[in-house]
């Protein structure tokens, strides 16, 4: 059968689930960020697939473009926070950052 919308959506679902798993289980903060990137990629893939096979315009591509830009911004801030975190706690384990707990 020809490659259609469903193929891309299932691939994106797989990427999303992998990203979700990485986000929830990894303890390294940078690992969590990598999970977020996977999820965002899955979303971009969905948008582009929909825009090609469902709508037929480039609006989905524009949305994906914004996602890529925002992901870059988010990664920059996150890395800055992680560097600070590492400086304060001497570890990158996300579970150790529980100082605000009562």
């Amino acid at each position: 059968m020809t490659i259609g919308l469903t193929h891309y959506l299932i691939l994106a679902a797989l990427l999303f689930c992998c990203g979700l798993f990485v986000m929830t289980t990894k303890r390294n903060a940078v690992g969590i960020l990598i999970g977020v990137e996977l999820v965002l990629n899955a979303a971009c893939l969905n948008l582009v697939a929909f825009s090609r096979y469902r709508v037929g315009t480039i609006d989905g591509q524009i949305a994906a473009l914004f996602i890529i830009v925002l992901a870059a911004a988010e990664a920059a801030v996150a890395i800055a926070i992680f560097v600070n975190y590492y400086r304060m706690l001497a570890t990158i384990d996300a579970d150790k950052g529980d100082e605000l707990r009562g």
């Binding site: 903060a29 990137e37 990664a75």
Partner: peptide, 15 residues
Amino acid sequence: GGTLILIVFGIMVTS
């Protein structure tokens, strides 16, 4: 070329 290099950079600083 950008975000991933930033991430690897962050890894190098913190791990």
